[in-house]
Design a protein around this nucleic acid. Structure first.
Lengths: 109, 109
DNA sequence: TACCTATATGACCACATAATCATATAGTCA
DNA sequence: TGACTATATGATTATGTGGTCATATAGGTA
């Protein structure tokens, strides 16, 4: 049942988590982590963003437990905390595709 | 596979949709719509927010095709465009619960 | 017509936050 | 120790946007 998950009590925390995922660079970081753990430097190279920026977003993702961190030697290795986040993206993509399809039908595309 | 859904091409639109869902009042509105269509006035009463604010969020939700609108007589009836959004909330709640559980275990709660 | 209700919208403010820069911290190795 | 690399963080700026207010629009009804 839909209302079981979304209730006035957890509404704020659910919204917060959505907001965390609402930043392209953070999604890009998570996408990179889908293949396994990565260092900050690797993520900087992969995303094309700056080191402080990537580091800051990782801190945010860590604070909200979307990623895990493990320090080994001189580096910090980040990994996805809960693979279920990718299910979220799947559903969102499904949403978008259906939206576009309806739009296409509506305009007789 | 995770990467099928989340790719550099749709990254921006996926993030946008997450951002739309990242506002408590908008989630509350969707929650109200879970039971069926509602007028703006009904949503204003149910949420305790102001009419212009609710109307504005509905406009946003409509622009991103998360809700549908139907005008009948003097009123505008809004309804959920794609019930899959509630699946999103379910998964997010699952995420949060697992996070809290891990936290609890980590601190020996 | 006038009046009421319902909804939308433009202007404005306040706040959150993403990005940048410079710098601090911390680990490795000579 | 010093030099180098990797990461984190404080200060600052710029931008987006949620909320409020006043007002406009539109339909219903007398």
């Amino acid at each position: 049942m839909a209302k079981t998950a979304l209730n006035p009590q957890n509404l704020e925390s659910v919204a917060t988590r959505f907001r965390i995922l609402g930043v392209p660079l953070r999604l890009e970081i998570l996408r990179q982590l889908a293949d396994g753990e990565r260092t900050v430097t690797a993520l900087v190279e992969a995303t094309g963003s700056t080191q402080p920026n990537v580091s800051k977003h990782l801190t945010t993702l860590l604070a909200h437990r979307l990623v895990k961190r493990e320090k080994r030697g001189n580096s910090a290795y980040y990994s996805v905390a809960d693979p279920a986040v990718f299910d979220l993206c799947e559903i969102v993509c499904g949403n978008i595709e259906r939206s576009l399809e309806e739009e296409r039908l509506a305009f007789g595309g």
